[in-house]
Design a protein around this nucleic acid. Sequence first.
DNA 1: CGTATCCTTGAACCATGTCAAGCAATGTGG
DNA 2: CCACATTGCTTGACATGGTTCAAGGATACG
Lengths: 233, 233
Amino acid sequence: MKNKEELPAFNSFALQKSLFRHLSKEAFDQLGFENSCNVYKKGEILYKEGNRLTGVYCISSGVVKVFKTGSEGRDQIIKFTKAGDIIGYRSVLSDEPACTSTKVLEDAVLCFIPTETLNHIIATNVSFTKDLLLIACKELDEANSFITDIAQKSVRERLAEVLILLKNEFGIDNTNTLKIALTREELANIIGTATESVIRLLSEFKQDHLIDLEGRKIKLLNVQELTRIANLF
Amino acid sequence: MKNKEELPAFNSFALQKSLFRHLSKEAFDQLGFENSCNVYKKGEILYKEGNRLTGVYCISSGVVKVFKTGSEGRDQIIKFTKAGDIIGYRSVLSDEPACTSTKVLEDAVLCFIPTETLNHIIATNVSFTKDLLLIACKELDEANSFITDIAQKSVRERLAEVLILLKNEFGIDNTNTLKIALTREELANIIGTATESVIRLLSEFKQDHLIDLEGRKIKLLNVQELTRIANLF
DNA sequence: CGTATCCTTGAACCATGTCAAGCAATGTGG
DNA sequence: CCACATTGCTTGACATGGTTCAAGGATACG
């Protein structure tokens, strides 16, 4: 079992340079992040679809997956969030139950901002609010692109695309291996297909020397060709 | 050919009670809507994906469809907008080229707000900005639900769902006929399928006495059963 | 070290896409 | 106002990508 020292430490840097860059030092300190940040372990659920939230979470480190559960009980992954991202703001601002669930994928440090505090910042800091608006716009853009892709591209294209997107978002190490490791089922739940289809297509990609597989580690051997398959430009 | 009198007239009411409800009378008047509103005819394209916008459009009346064009050239309809809605704000705020195209579906009156004016309002009116944020959040929520639906539901389920959604958004007349009339292809471009599939499924729905068809007019005979088929609750 | 989760492969099925062809409706220009 | 062109609608036949089910092996984890 891991002890505390091995867990990700609170790092205010990621937060200070993100959404909160427009806050004065005083305002930032008033958020009390030093006290309201907690360690969350892999597998923990922060909240579920339908829950009422009492505030938002800011990610200092780690990875959190955001997903919806469809009518047949299958999960649809909406996005992954990492250091600097904020989650739960839609529900809090709209004063509605959460429309997604969130689960920790990699041990994380999350800082909590109560609804009241967030509303106060919004009411008094236009730059902050506009930044939040920009974040929402960016997510909206991504969501719309994703709708188009899911509606029009084949599973093969979408799988190649997701590999590229994961590379762009989480990076690769010096052996070209994706830094984020997902289960086959999670990959399937991003692109909206069956786990078996992902397995078969990954095998194909491997045979075609586009990727290499070692458990959940995926090494990208030919990014250019994957990009072409994905119909990305 | 239609003469001017038959075209929709400018109606500031829809706008005053929407996004602009937080503006003082003076601020609202300064938008100069009486002069910046124009009539747009069915089929007109307001802007295309990739265009730089010089401002946003507010819809006083009519219907505008917002869509993206996929890699194979097929359109994916993202949403329909009507009186009180605002379009183009994502691109303007993010200072990026448009990520969608927009086309007039039903003759419309649109009021233009230049980028500078919009930015001025945002910088000086927190309530307005927060409202815009709420609009973005709502669209984001809808987009995420749509992603889940497209990824997990069958074409049959999605078609039933779209019929219900169109009913909720545009209403039905006293014969239960949807007020909005779309081509088969447009229906297909919402749910992400082939035109032929829509035609076949609509015929099936008709045979099952769930709907009645007369050209583009769709009469809903059994909303409850359609809702059940759509897996909506 | 045993249990749970995850991964893999094969086989069969079917929902949906594609292609082709004809008809209907709508709009336009002479 | 007619004739032609364009666009939209429909149906059939066929191909196939993808899902589902089943069963066994591998791996991870407490």
